[in-house]
Amino acid sequence: MTGYALAHLRKAPVHADVLEYLERIDATLAPFAGRFIVHGGAIEVLEGDWPGDLVVIEFPDLARARAWYHSNDYQKIKPLRTRHLTGEVILVEGVAAGHDSSEIAANIRGGGAVR
């Protein structure tokens, strides 16, 4: 199952550390087959409030997403971002091809767990 790293980052003034982070992050993704699928593109807010930018990085599976985040190479550059940008970062598993949301509803109706 595909894994994703998502970051909701608040806007902040551009800093040299953040530019260095951007210059170096791609090299940390390569060993884990990670690739940006969203990287701060235009956002159209349809409901609620969305202060900041969205970043989505796709990995072949959640294990590789986790391994990338905890890798020495990524941990070395992470402070370049975290010292200057606030926000949330999560890892999440994708869904299989043919995913059917009604199956979740049926499971819940049958007393199953919400997932």
Rank of each mutant, 00 (worst) to 15 (best):
G98D: 07
N107Q: 13
E103C: 06
L29G: 04
H99A: 11
Y74V: 06
Y69D: 01
E44A: 09
W68A: 00
I77Q: 08
F32H: 00
A63L: 05
E58N: 01
L91P: 05
R66V: 08
E23K: 13
P79G: 06
D17F: 07
I25G: 00
G111C: 06
G40T: 12
P13R: 04
K78C: 08
Q75F: 03
H39D: 04
A5I: 01
A97P: 15
W68T: 01
A105K: 10
G94K: 00
S102R: 12
L22T: 07
A65L: 03
Y4R: 10
V95R: 14
K76W: 13
L62K: 05
A63N: 04
L19N: 14
H8K: 15
P79M: 06
G52R: 13
N72Y: 00
V92P: 03
A12Y: 03
T28F: 05
A63F: 03
I108L: 15
L91F: 04
A65V: 02
G41H: 06
V55R: 01
V114R: 15
H39E: 10
S71T: 08
H70C: 06
R35A: 11
R66Y: 08
E93V: 13
A7M: 02
I77K: 12
V45R: 15
A33N: 13
A12F: 09
K78W: 09
I37S: 03
F32V: 04
R24L: 15
L22A: 11
R109F: 10
D100V: 01
Y21K: 08
A63M: 04
G40D: 01
P60L: 13
R35P: 02
V95I: 11
G94Y: 01
H70Y: 07
E47F: 14
Y4T: 07
F59E: 00
A67D: 11
G34W: 07
P51G: 06
E103L: 05
F59W: 04
D61L: 01
A7Y: 01
F36P: 08
R10Q: 11
